[in-house]
């Protein structure tokens, strides 16, 4: 089965835009859940760039890296959400501006 022939630039442009959006979300949101979502978006954008590169060179490596990113994302979300629960319990808030006990 064949695929589409798409200008690689466009895919990478999309990936960059998605990544920037995720980054902006990370900087903008104060709620830890939204921050985690932003991280997912960023990881996903990176994965998109890898898959696009794999499609350009017709190699399996892009998809393999995608798999690795997937496992990183899964692990991160599992631990991150566990932390979210802990934060909610201890600080009774998800506002990361108030959870700043590590300040110098």
């Amino acid at each position: 089965m064949g695929g589409l022939q798409i200008p690689l630039e466009h895919v990478l442009l999309l990936a960059a835009t998605l990544f920037s959006c995720g980054l902006m979300g990370l900087m903008l949101r104060r709620n830890i859940i939204f921050m985690l979502m932003s991280l997912e978006v960023m990881l996903n954008a990176a994965a998109l760039a890898f898959v696009a590169a794999g499609a350009r060179w017709q190699q399996a490596d892009g998809q393999i890296i995608f798999l690795l990113i997937l496992s990183v994302a899964a692990a991160e979300v599992a631990v991150g959400l566990g932390l979210v629960l802990q934060i909610q319990r201890r600080f009774k808030t998800l506002d990361m501006d108030q959870v700043n006990r590590l300040r110098g």
Partner: peptide
């Protein structure tokens, strides 16, 4: 730079 197309062949 590098305006190029994807291969169009599925992996």
């Amino acid at each position: 730079h590098a305006p190029t197309l994807t291969s169009g062949v599925a992996v």
